[in-house]
């Protein structure tokens, strides 16, 4: 199964300053381990919400809203797409990630029946 991991890093999601080299190195080591285990399909980091937009749909009307957005806790700072054999396996991998804050959401991707 495929799972999407959304990294909600709280204040850090919005920080304009990049992570320290040590933190980066630790993250890279973990990511490499995941790649070597054949888990990672895709990974990416996102710019802070000050550089992003939202489009709101209301019937036929579309409204574009400029960032930054206020609900810091819900803002996604990065994502992973993983191929795992169960949600539990995803959780076991995720628990090994070198983070000391934030919430990481694990969502299973719907795949077509018969696939």
């Amino acid at each position: 199964m495929r799972v999407l991991i959304m990294a909600k890093e709280g204040e850090k999601s919005e920080a304009a300053t990049p992570p320290t080299p040590e933190a980066m190195a630790e993250y890279q080591k973990f990511n490499e381990e995941l790649v070597k285990a054949g888990v990672v399909l895709e990974a990416g980091r996102l710019y802070p919400s000050s550089q992003s937009k939202r489009v709101q749909f209301n019937g036929k009307k579309r409204t574009v809203i400029d960032g930054p957005f206020t609900e810091t806790k819900e803002l996604v700072a990065g994502y992973w797409l993983w191929q795992v054999r169960s949600i539990d396996e995803a959780l076991e991998w995720l628990k090994r990630a070198p983070y000391d804050g934030g919430t990481f959401e694990v969502r299973e991707v719907i795949e077509f029946e018969g696939m």
Partner: peptide, 11 residues
């Protein structure tokens, strides 16, 4: 049990 099974699959 499920957590142990998942760890087993990984390891």
């Amino acid at each position: 049990h499920r957590a142990i099974e998942a760890i087993w699959r990984i390891e």
